[in-house]
Deep mutational scan, measured.
Amino acid sequence: CHSECLGNCSQPDDPTKCVACRNFYLDGRCVETCPPPYYHFQDWRCVNFSFCQDLHHKCKNSRRQGCHQYVIHNNKCIPECPSGYTMNSSNLLCTPCLGPCPKVCHLLEGEKTIDSVTSAQELRGCTVINGSLIINIRGGNNLAAELEANLGLIEEISGYLKIRRSYALVSLSFFRKLRLIRGETLEIGNYSFYALDNQNLRQLWDWSKHNLTITQGKLFFHYNPKLCLSEIHKMEEVSGTKGRQERNDIALKTNGDQASCENELLKFSYIRTSFDKILLRWEPYWPPDFRDLLGFMLFYKEAPYQNVTEFDGQDACGSNSWTVVDIDPPLRSNDPKSQNHPGWLMRGLKPWTQYAIFVKTLVTFSDERRTYGAKSDIIYVQTDATNPSVPLDPISVSNSSSQIILKWKPPSDPNGNITHYLVFWERQAEDSELFELDYCLKGLKLPSRTWSPPFESEDSQKHNQSEYEDSAGECCSCPKTDSQILKELEESSFRKTFEDYLHNVVFVPRKT
Rank of each mutant, 00 (worst) to 15 (best):
104 V>C: 03
105 C>E: 00
107 L>F: 05
108 L>M: 14
108 L>R: 08
108 L>V: 13
109 E>T: 10
110 G>C: 02
110 G>K: 04
112 K>V: 08
112 K>T: 15
114 I>W: 01
115 D>C: 04
115 D>G: 01
116 S>L: 06
118 T>E: 08
119 S>V: 12
119 S>D: 12
119 S>F: 04
119 S>Q: 07
121 Q>I: 13
123 L>P: 01
125 G>V: 07
125 G>R: 04
127 T>P: 03
127 T>D: 13
128 V>I: 07
130 N>Y: 03
131 G>S: 03
133 L>D: 00
134 I>K: 02
135 I>L: 03
136 N>M: 05
137 I>A: 07
139 G>K: 14
139 G>N: 11
140 G>Y: 07
141 N>G: 14
141 N>I: 05
141 N>P: 08
143 L>S: 06
143 L>G: 15
146 E>H: 15
146 E>Q: 05
147 L>S: 02
148 E>I: 14
150 N>H: 15
150 N>P: 10
155 E>H: 14
156 E>F: 08
156 E>L: 09
156 E>Y: 04
157 I>S: 00
160 Y>T: 05
162 K>M: 07
163 I>M: 12
163 I>C: 07
164 R>T: 13
165 R>H: 10
165 R>I: 15
166 S>C: 12
166 S>E: 02
167 Y>N: 11
167 Y>S: 02
168 A>G: 00
170 V>T: 08
173 S>V: 11
175 F>I: 08
176 R>F: 04
176 R>N: 02
177 K>Y: 07
177 K>Q: 11
179 R>D: 05
181 I>G: 00
181 I>V: 04
183 G>T: 02
183 G>R: 01
184 E>M: 03
185 T>R: 07
187 E>T: 07
188 I>T: 13
188 I>H: 10
190 N>S: 12
190 N>L: 07
192 S>V: 12
192 S>T: 01
193 F>L: 11
193 F>W: 04
194 Y>S: 08
194 Y>I: 12
195 A>H: 05
195 A>M: 06
199 Q>S: 04
203 Q>L: 05
205 W>I: 03
206 D>E: 15
208 S>W: 07
209 K>T: 13
212 L>V: 10
212 L>I: 11
213 T>P: 04
214 I>S: 05
214 I>A: 08
214 I>T: 11
215 T>M: 06
216 Q>K: 00
217 G>F: 01
219 L>G: 04
221 F>K: 01
222 H>S: 06
222 H>P: 00
223 Y>D: 12
224 N>W: 01
226 K>A: 08
230 S>P: 05
230 S>W: 03
231 E>S: 04
233 H>K: 13
233 H>F: 07
234 K>S: 07
234 K>G: 13
235 M>K: 00
237 E>D: 08
240 G>T: 13
240 G>E: 07
241 T>H: 08
242 K>E: 13
244 R>F: 02
244 R>T: 10
244 R>M: 13
244 R>H: 14
246 E>W: 02
247 R>I: 12
247 R>F: 11
249 D>Y: 09
249 D>N: 06
249 D>K: 15
251 A>Y: 14
251 A>N: 10
252 L>R: 10
252 L>F: 11
254 T>S: 10
255 N>R: 08
255 N>Q: 09
257 D>S: 03
258 Q>W: 13
258 Q>Y: 15
258 Q>G: 02
259 A>E: 04
260 S>I: 04
261 C>K: 03
261 C>Y: 03
261 C>V: 02
261 C>Q: 02
262 E>L: 04
262 E>V: 14
263 N>S: 14
264 E>K: 03
266 L>N: 01
269 S>R: 11
269 S>Q: 05
273 T>G: 07
273 T>I: 07
274 S>A: 07
275 F>S: 09
277 K>F: 04
277 K>W: 11
277 K>Q: 02
279 L>S: 03
280 L>H: 01
281 R>A: 09
281 R>V: 15
281 R>M: 08
282 W>T: 06
283 E>I: 09
290 F>T: 05
291 R>K: 11
293 L>I: 08
293 L>N: 06
293 L>A: 08
293 L>Q: 10
293 L>V: 07
294 L>I: 06
295 G>Y: 12
295 G>N: 02
297 M>V: 04
297 M>I: 11
298 L>R: 00
299 F>H: 07
299 F>G: 08
299 F>K: 14
301 K>N: 13
303 A>W: 05
303 A>N: 07
304 P>A: 14
306 Q>H: 06
312 D>I: 15
313 G>Q: 11
313 G>T: 11
313 G>H: 13
313 G>V: 10
314 Q>L: 12
315 D>L: 09
316 A>N: 05
316 A>S: 04
317 C>M: 04
319 S>N: 07
319 S>R: 10
319 S>W: 01
320 N>W: 14
321 S>Y: 04
321 S>E: 14
322 W>I: 03
323 T>N: 07
323 T>P: 02
324 V>M: 09
326 D>F: 15
326 D>I: 02
327 I>R: 02
328 D>P: 15
330 P>Q: 14
332 R>K: 05
333 S>G: 07
334 N>R: 14
335 D>S: 08
336 P>R: 15
337 K>F: 07
338 S>N: 09
339 Q>K: 03
339 Q>D: 03
340 N>E: 09
343 G>H: 10
343 G>S: 03
345 L>R: 01
346 M>I: 12
349 L>P: 01
349 L>F: 03
350 K>Y: 14
350 K>M: 09
352 W>Q: 14
353 T>S: 13
353 T>F: 03
353 T>I: 15
356 A>K: 02
358 F>L: 02
359 V>I: 15
360 K>D: 03
360 K>S: 12
360 K>H: 01
361 T>S: 14
361 T>W: 08
363 V>T: 10
366 S>L: 02
367 D>H: 04
368 E>Y: 11
369 R>Y: 13
369 R>V: 08
370 R>P: 10
371 T>V: 08
371 T>Y: 03
373 G>K: 06
373 G>L: 11
374 A>E: 03
375 K>Y: 07
378 I>S: 01
381 V>I: 12
382 Q>E: 11
383 T>C: 09
386 T>L: 03
389 S>L: 11
391 P>A: 01
392 L>N: 13
392 L>I: 09
394 P>M: 09
395 I>A: 08
399 N>P: 14
401 S>T: 12
401 S>G: 13
404 I>M: 06
407 K>G: 04
409 K>R: 14
409 K>C: 11
